[in-house]
């Protein structure tokens, strides 16, 4: 696969950060259709960008034969987004705290921390075929 593929409320991209804008445009378009307010769209878009960055770089190790998929749905007043890659996954407990003094001025390591801060719920499941992260945000 060498180009993004969109099917309904799902987009798949090859493992390259050059397609981040495709995912962002897709997510923003769907959220505007759900009439989500701008500030929440930004919070969700930031979180999705963090997780797609992680999936491309750390999950799929930028292997262009592997894909990252993002699907979005509205369940009542909750927006639920699933980000799936084909990598080995990560243990959220093993990620060091970016607020610790020794980490504060590091230029990486804040992504998951920011997602946890902005979203209401973050669920990470790793299987033999990849990692699926589900984030939920109430728009009520």
């Amino acid at each position: 696969m060498h180009e993004p593929i969109i099917k309904g409320n799902m987009i798949s991209i090859p493992s390259s950060l050059e397609y981040l804008t495709n995912i962002d445009d897709f997510i923003e378009g769907i959220l505007r259709g759900f009439e989500v307010e701008d500030s929440l769209i930004a919070d969700i878009a930031i979180s999705v960008s963090e997780l797609v960055n992680n999936s491309v770089n750390h999950g799929n190790h930028s292997d262009s034969d592997k894909t990252v998929s993002v699907s979005i749905s509205k369940k009542g007043t909750d927006i639920e987004i699933m980000i799936e890659d084909q990598g080995q996954g990560f243990n959220p407990q093993e990620i060091s705290n970016p607020l610790d003094e020794e980490n504060l001025l590091k230029d990486t390591g804040r992504g998951i921390f920011i997602v946890n801060a902005l979203m209401d719920k973050v669920d990470v499941k790793t299987t033999s075929s990849g990692t699926k992260t589900t984030i939920t945000k109430s728009i009520a």
Binding site: A42, A45, I46, S49, E50, N53, L105, K106, D107, T108, G109, R110, G111, F113, I114
Partner: peptide
């Protein structure tokens, strides 16, 4: 800037330090 994520923060921090 509409928004930035940790990549943007990382660029600013890296240049700052």
């Amino acid at each position: 800037v509409d928004w930035m994520n940790s990549t943007g923060l990382g660029i600013l921090i890296s240049a700052y330090t």
